[in-house]
Design a protein around this nucleic acid. Structure first.
Lengths: 197, 197, 197, 197
DNA sequence: TATGAATGAGTCTTCATTCAT
DNA sequence: GATGAATGAAGACTCATTCAT
């Protein structure tokens, strides 16, 4: 009955989580009232725990960054327990991209960096964390390439509400990790139009 | 009488461009006054030409979409005039990613899509336009893969204020387009700790 | 019917005057709403014309300072047209102190200087203006003394809602300006208690 | 257990003193938090000891009034122990006016009276106390005149952060108490522009 | 047509006050 | 008895929008 009240840390976290959630859903007009309502706390609480709405926003972004770190760590474990084959990696990518929430989080983090340069640090941490992770499987340069691709796949997933299909991811990882594609892909520009020449 | 005045269409466009510019720079609080100031027009103009701020915002996004289309068309021409080799394509990517403004525009368009689903159409148009473009060079599936990578590279460029380096882009395009990498990249997990040599 | 509206300067002045009036009456809690109500204008007007409540307060103090200057100038004219005798000066003091509004204004100006050192300039201008004025009648040192006394008399009048009585003012001016009192005033401390010793 | 705690009366007094101090320094926005911080006590204490902020404010003004009374009493003693000569009185005035804190206190008390008529009682008590005091040295009417002057000198000191110079005070007290100035001070208006000499 | 004065709705923020602990 | 978490009322301030000119 009273467990909920008088739990400063918990309440604070609830508010932050609510703000983060709204941000990840692209809410265009986030106000104290909206956050309070979403968190199920009275208006005053949002201002009691945070000196300004901007502070709350910062806390939420930090919160998201931690979530990203946690995801990264979790993925690292899975990776270590796996065989590290392109197929497995592709499957993990697919799983990752299937989590709409997570995918949006990344987009939010990225676009927030635009307006607030100090946030770029967080986004870059995510990115370099991913590169580090992939470096366990391949050389650093390829890991970087793969990470860039994953970012693009995130955008794509955020935009289409579904991840790229698994076979494509498999092809890509195989191609990048082994340097061997299953078939030649070059096509001359002319080829596009004419059939019979 | 001076030529600058009495050009309704021009003034309207100035306002739209100002709004678009502010949006691309991540301005957090865009108001009529801010846009008017940025465009160098009186406050009243912004409300005279647009029924609401939201209308103006929509016009700006349309404006950006057109810009994207124009970029796409321009790139298409360049591509047609080129030899279509992976190196050339990589160079074009590099050029494209070097334009910070453009790269930001894409990120803005993407994150705006999050908040306003109707915009996802615009973003998807950009993406499929890119795929169509690349399809002139390779099969549709590879083109899709490349487009995803370009999106990722855009995010990366927006975040780091500089594009990925050209060699990496070259490796990637070559790898995807020819299915041939210059060297094997797979590294077995075991390899990290050599057993018997 | 429309003369009142669309008169920016006039409306601005109304608001300033309302604020000044409230300040002079020692209103403890001056808010936008209170000023708006007192000036008979809508709430928005008070924020439209002044970037902040503090700006409005500053404008009001400037307004009061101008009023003080005007009073000073007016008094100067009266003084020039007078015979400059102590009696006349005393009478003018009495008139001055009889204006409750004016007397309060001075107190407000003084106490505002406490909280906002930049206002001390205004208060000092009033004071030195008074000294200059009195310097036309007597030496500067005596003028200073008289000005200090007038300040004290202002405080007294503000506190008691009525000026010091005329005879006292006459005695004082005569005493200071001529250096001649009508009777000796020294009384030995012992004299207070014992009658017969 | 350390002696500092468990001293309700002492803590109460600390809070009151902190409030009084803030008031005397012209703090524009006095809140519970501000007082608590200034007094070095927890926020709760300020509401625990005083039913409302207004109560606390009243207590502080009472506190200041007592301080004024104490000053008055102390001055009375000094006066009784002195020779009561104008020079001595002037020196005492000078001492009094040299205490910036005290001088501000009076101004605060006066201006507070404006907003809260019930405080005028306190201010008048100070003033009549001063008159009583000076009445031990001279007739009541002159004492009143001197008290008014001292009030003016307080304003002047508060505004300039330093008291009037001693010689001026000496001249004034001598002039008022003996009715004898060291030199004639009248200057005829004509004198400004000499006619025929 | 074009502009800026005008206004009130809505937001952030502060804070007196209450009250669980 | 003391304290700080908690909250809603209230104020400063912003600004979209309206409208007189």
């Amino acid at each position: 009955m009273s467990g909920t009240r008088r739990d400063p840390a918990g309440r604070r976290r609830e508010i932050v989580a609510a703000m983060a959630d709204l941000m990840c859903h692209g809410e265009p007009k986030i106000t104290h009232r909206r956050v309070a309502q979403h968190a199920g706390v009275p208006l005053g609480s949002t201002t009691y725990y945070f000196a300004s709405l901007d502070d709350l926003r910062s806390a939420a972004l930090e919160f998201l960054a931690e979530k990203v770190d946690a995801d990264l760590a979790e993925t690292a474990e899975l990776l270590d327990a796996s065989d590290g084959s392109p197929e497995t990696v592709a499957a993990m990518f697919h799983d990752y991209l299937s989590d709409a929430e997570r995918v949006r989080t990344e987009l939010v983090l990225y676009s927030a960096s635009l307006a607030r340069p100090e946030l770029a640090v967080v986004s870059r941490r995510w990115f370099s964390g991913l590169v580090d992770l992939l470096s366990r499987l391949t050389d650093r340069r390829t890991a970087l390439t793969m990470a860039v691709f994953v970012d693009g796949a995130c955008m794509h997933a955020a935009l289409n509400d579904e991840p790229l299909d698994l076979p494509l991811l498999q092809d890509l990882t195989r191609s990048l990790m082994t340097g061997t594609a299953d078939r030649p892909r070059l096509r001359a520009p002319e080829e596009t139009e004419p059939r019979t020449s």
